[in-house]
Amino acid sequence: MRSLPRASVVFVLVSAPLWAMSSCATNAIANPADEAIFPIGSKNLLPNAVVDMPMSASPLEIDKMTFFNEDLSVAVGAPPAEAITQPIAFPHSLHVKDLGMDCQYCHSSARKEVHAGVPPTQLCMGCHSLIASDGKDGNPDRPELEKLKAFWADGKGDPIRWVKVHDLPDYVYFSHKRHVLGGVQCQECHGQVQEMGVAQRVASLQMGWCLDCHAQHSLDDSYGTQQELRRSELKDCWTCHK
């Protein structure tokens, strides 16, 4: 019998808050019928490393381009643990160093647009339709070119699913145009691409890295007396985040 008062104390202590909770206005959960129609996204509390954007091959999914709905918490992290492999092992060194092509031959919108742009398969085929790839006629066997031609399929192929090497979070707006027009060399951010086979990331791409560069670089002379103003403008968060 002595345990009865204690038990009742425990009972009251446990049940009182529960009762209080349930009797509070229960307006936290939307009406169930509505919840199916107005889904509320939940926060993935797992570390960012686990977050990947699943992509399927349906045309709608591809158009989605993962531009959207990426978590504002997903920051630039370290490059992938292993070297990036691409569907076609495109040798930058061959094209840039050996053949002497300009970066902007393929990434032509770099000086015109926010995006540097990955060339359409059509552009590759402009040259490669003339280069044999099957090892016949005394040419070396070029299996990667075979892949390219399979992707081309007379203009009816699938787009090549390149892996993004320099991937900024979606809340970062980086304009290639302003940097290229400002005379920044591609290598300053992308590393010595002309020495690479498949391009790999060398820079951290983190915000501090950007700001370091902006602190060091002297501004274009054309700004003259407005240099300080330009410098302040570059410190405006809205330059890159909006």
Binding site: N48, T66, A75, A78, R161, W162
Partner: peptide, 16 residues
């Protein structure tokens, strides 16, 4: 936790 940048893909046009 040294978060890795999530893998994303770029899909260029076949014919622009």
């Amino acid at each position: 936790i040294d978060a890795r940048t999530p893998i994303e893909h770029v899909l260029p046009y076949v014919q622009m």
